[in-house]
Amino acid sequence: LAESGRRLRIWAHGGHSAARHLAQVLGLTLFRELRQMRRSLGDLDLPDPVLPDGVSVRPFVPGRDDAAWLAVNADAFAHHPEQGSLTQRDLDDRKAEPWFDPAGFFLAEKDGELIGFHWTKVHAEEGLGEVYVLGVRSGAQGGGLGKALTTIGLNHLAGAGLPTAMLYVDADNKAAVSVYERLGFVTHETDLMYRTES
């Protein structure tokens, strides 16, 4: 606290009571609640995804789709300080990771324009498939595209033989939490971010 000039943000992974107590003692305030949600893929029996009229889905093509994806990501996550500010370099770094697989990176288009996406990720050692990032452009939200894209990604992960799917979502993103709960996800763990600044 002294070194930071009392401007500090701290994650408490698991949100345990001892961390809550320490935060209170230090005068830190709760700033963010991040939920890890999970569901089994072994019993995956979801209705077929229903895409809005005129919408088609295809895999991401590295190089060709980068700029369009970055623009939709920035729009969909304009409220999110980390995800919404990704740059080409950030995307290149992720494409260079051994887990990157464009076959599990789904793009939704309407009239040749990108309007949403679901980027999945596989944690092979843990046997987990992840809803890594899912976003819908602001003008295309509310029509069921997010649910359809989630279902497409979950079917992809189940088809790869993964037993469990997981995701991270901010607790205050009520719309996303509701979609995930209706798709069978339950909270597995909660991480809390505390901060010193008011």
Rank of each mutant, 00 (worst) to 15 (best):
Leu1Glu: 10
Leu1Thr: 13
Leu1Asn: 09
Ala2Thr: 10
Glu3Trp: 06
Gly5His: 07
Arg6Val: 09
Leu8Arg: 05
Trp11Ile: 13
Trp11His: 08
Ala12His: 07
His13Lys: 11
Gly15Trp: 04
His16Gly: 04
Ala19Met: 08
Arg20Asn: 01
Leu22Met: 07
Gln24Asp: 12
Gln24Val: 03
Val25Ser: 12
Leu26Ile: 01
Gly27Ala: 03
Leu28Asn: 05
Leu30Cys: 10
Arg32Lys: 15
Leu34Asp: 11
Leu34Ser: 09
Gln36Arg: 14
Gln36Val: 15
Arg38Asp: 13
Arg39Asp: 09
Arg39Ala: 12
Ser40Trp: 03
Leu41Arg: 07
Leu44His: 13
Leu44Cys: 14
Leu46Met: 10
Pro49Phe: 06
Leu51Val: 04
Asp53His: 09
Ser56Ala: 12
Pro59Met: 05
Pro62Thr: 10
Gly63His: 12
Arg64Phe: 04
Arg64Leu: 13
Asp65Asn: 04
Asp65Ala: 01
Ala67Tyr: 01
Trp69Lys: 00
Asp75Lys: 02
Ala76Glu: 05
Ala78His: 08
His80Glu: 11
Gln83Ile: 14
Gln83Arg: 06
Gly84Ile: 11
Leu86Lys: 07
Gln88Asp: 06
Arg89Gly: 11
Asp90Ile: 05
Asp92Tyr: 01
Arg94Pro: 05
Lys95Ala: 10
Ala96Trp: 02
Trp99Ser: 00
Phe100Met: 00
Phe100Arg: 00
Pro102Glu: 09
Phe106Asp: 14
Ala108Cys: 05
Lys110Tyr: 00
Ile115Tyr: 01
Trp119Val: 10
Val122Asp: 02
His123Tyr: 13
Gly127Thr: 11
Gly129Ile: 12
Gly129Gln: 07
Glu130Cys: 00
Tyr132Gly: 10
Val133Gln: 08
Leu134Tyr: 00
Val136Phe: 01
Arg137Trp: 06
Ala140Trp: 02
Ala140Ile: 09
Gln141Trp: 02
Gln141Asp: 02
Gly142Ser: 06
Gly144Ile: 02
Gly144Met: 01
Gly146Asn: 05
Lys147Val: 14
Lys147Asp: 06
Ala148Ile: 05
Ala148His: 08
Leu149Gly: 03
Leu149Thr: 07
Thr150Arg: 00
Thr150Val: 01
Ile152Lys: 00
Ile152Trp: 01
Ile152Ser: 02
Gly153His: 08
Leu154Val: 11
Asn155Gly: 11
Asn155Thr: 09
Asn155Cys: 07
His156Thr: 11
Leu157Arg: 08
Ala158His: 09
Ala160Gly: 03
Gly161Pro: 07
Met166Thr: 12
Leu167Ala: 05
Val169Met: 06
Asp172Glu: 09
Asp172Met: 05
Lys174Gln: 15
Arg182Ala: 14
Val186Ala: 15
Thr187Gly: 02
Thr187Leu: 05
Glu189Arg: 15
Thr190Val: 13
Asp191Phe: 06
Tyr194Ala: 03
Arg195Cys: 13
